[in-house]
Design a binder for these strands. Structure first.
Lengths: 351, 351
DNA sequence: TGTTAGCACTCAAATCGGTAGAGTGCTAAC
DNA sequence: GTTAGCACTCTACCGATTTGAGTGCTAACA
């Protein structure tokens, strides 16, 4: 595909067409543009240019004798151009987010909701992904006669609780001993590093209480695996019903299903994809824009997805995204995401 | 409204009409019934009876010269009749639920999904509601130089973690002392019972570390309030798009929004409602059925909602519900919910 | 050579009329 | 009390026609 530069007039016309289409959602005709822009060109001239633009692949005609609408390629150009310009307009998201959201989970849900409400599109956000979670420390405590509580503290200051069945009540001194054994041998290890040799060693040192050790290790494994699981939160799914071009046929059904099911959404954050997208989208900064077929998810072929990567600490990142119609207000969405990123950054740093 | 008993023939006809409508979703005419039942009556006779039934309020005609469809009152009669009959057909839900679902949260989500998949309607489930949560014990632990972990154990074996900012590292012996003070004074208290006098006492005993106490108490308050919050999980919301009578107009939009927002759903479990419903729905056992206008939620006026109450332990209960079109398969839904209840019961008992 | 006016042409969407079919209500006969 | 028959009603559907927005092309103009 030829990457020929468009002359500035073509550029202006394309711009005007896209802008207009973003607003109305209707195919836009030559006459509209002739009046809409200050180029003071007649509709006939515009028509010629439009024909050119169509030939170059930036515009599409839904059918003969309808106006033009931007193709994916047209959107792409528009978005790329737009991304180069400064986007700034800090709004007061921070206020909402700042109130102590203790659990990261709640914070993320709040972010998703905020985005959906602000943009009127659907939004999603994933929990941050650690390479592989390590154990920071573990502590066993008596709960009652038949239960112990294992507090499992993972790298990244994540506490996890696991209640463990016990056949009898353990003396405090025994628990103390076990705590010391477990911590001295397991500290800073991840799942791969906890092997049979280490397990054996622990059991030896635990002596008569080695029966318990198995259950404790299970709990640790569970905790780490639980935390490794990337969760996806969505919000504003119903917003997409406001866009007729998405809610026709059963497109809406499939899209809503995807958003509810969430499984497929994980693909959007797949490492492979992220790296690829760097080249493909040619974006600047953290923001990626997938237009139509560029998204890997089938039910979103008629949508655009704008994602951003947030970093919670060195090397630990998650993704947040907005899903809307192709004619979404990219300008606003990108702006919103950018300010969100800086504000999240501040929040995480402060912690 | 006259609660006149219907003679058995009218009853049979009404039954046949409803059954047929449940299947097809189309208004049903006299001719259909004449053949459908084994009453061997001509369509004309049926017509007469239908006219009577309409006059009594059990049937409705969408427009002249269309067949009849059941009114809310008609459904009500049908459902009440049905509930008296035995419903039994245990399927294998238990298998799915039995695998160790450690956190109740996950179990509930799984239940919701299971219901939605099994019935093809939307489902919801709430977290169980405790009267008022009491503190069982609390324990402070060092995390690193600037953070403490408070493990807050609530009545009902619910562990909660709160990370607390600290201005310096506390000696183990200090923490031990604080733990003892906190537990001796706060054990078995709920939020109301923790008053200024007690707080004062704690601070006195804590001496120079009283600055920390405020933050610890905040954490406790948060933990209890968090747990008091009833959460609602939903599943299968998109299923409702399969029923044209619900997805017409913007009814689907509003309904889906309700399901996503969840706030309004809490009304369904409101104490007030639950007690009222006992009389209103006249159901048997644990199952409540709300038909059309009987539901308190506006966006569900065209739906039916079937709810059941599960009990996790003495006095601690939650609600699970199924939302579908009025012409839902009540028989199956009620059956499914009933077996689910018994199976949940077993799971909770075993724990 | 680029721009514009004019005109014929195309196509989706809205409008209108007519028909078919399902179903009812009523009456008269059994 | 039941049934057959018939006139009537109303929706859904089909097809033809119209409307209007928009295009492409050509010819004239600066």
């Amino acid at each position: 595909m030829d990457t020929d530069k468009l002359d500035s007039r073509k550029m202006a016309i394309l711009n005007a067409i896209i802008r207009n289409y973003l607003e109305t959602g209707e195919p836009v005709g030559s006459r509209t543009i002739s009046k809409f822009t200050d180029l003071s060109l007649s509709s006939a001239t515009i028509r010629n240019e439009m024909a050119d633009l169509e030939e170059l692949g930036y515009l599409v005609q839904p059918h003969t004798s309808a106006g033009r609408i931007p193709s994916d390629k047209g959107y792409r150009l528009y978005v790329d151009k737009m991304m180069e310009e400064k986007v700034e307009e800090v709004n007061n998201m921070k206020e909402v987010l700042d109130q102590k959201a203790d659990r990261i989970e709640n914070l993320l849900k709040k972010v998703a909701k905020l985005l959906a409400v602000n943009t009127n599109y659907a939004s999603m956000i994933t929990t941050p992904k650690y390479r592989s979670r390590k154990l920071k420390f573990i502590q066993l405590t008596n709960v009652d006669d038949t239960h112990l509580l294992a507090i499992i503290f993972l790298e990244g200051n994540i506490p996890k609780n696991k209640v463990i069945d016990a056949d009898h009540r353990y003396e405090e001194s025994v628990l103390l001993k076990l705590n010391i054994v477990l911590n001295s041998l397991l500290q800073d290890l991840d799942l791969e590093e906890i092997n049979m040799s280490i397990i054996q060693k622990i059991k030896e040192q635990a002596g008569e209480d080695s029966a318990l050790i198995g259950r404790v290790l299970d709990a640790i494994g569970e905790a780490i695996r639980e935390e490794d699981n990337i969760e996806v939160y969505t919000s504003g799914a119903t917003n997409i019903l406001n866009y007729p071009e998405l809610s026709s046929d059963d497109g809406a059904k499939r899209l809503l299903y995807t958003l509810e099911d969430k499984q497929e959404l994980a693909e959007l954050v797949d490492d492979k994809l992220t790296s690829e997208s760097g080249e493909r989208t040619g974006t600047k900064g953290d923001i990626q824009v997938y237009i139509g077929n560029e998204t890997p998810i089938d039910s979103m072929k008629n949508c655009s997805v704008v994602t951003a990567t947030y970093e919670i600490e060195e090397g630990v990142y998650g993704k947040v995204g907005i899903i809307g119609p192709k004619r979404m207000d990219y300008d606003k969405v990108v702006g919103t995401l950018k300010t969100l990123m800086t504000q999240l950054d501040e929040i995480f740093k402060k912690k």
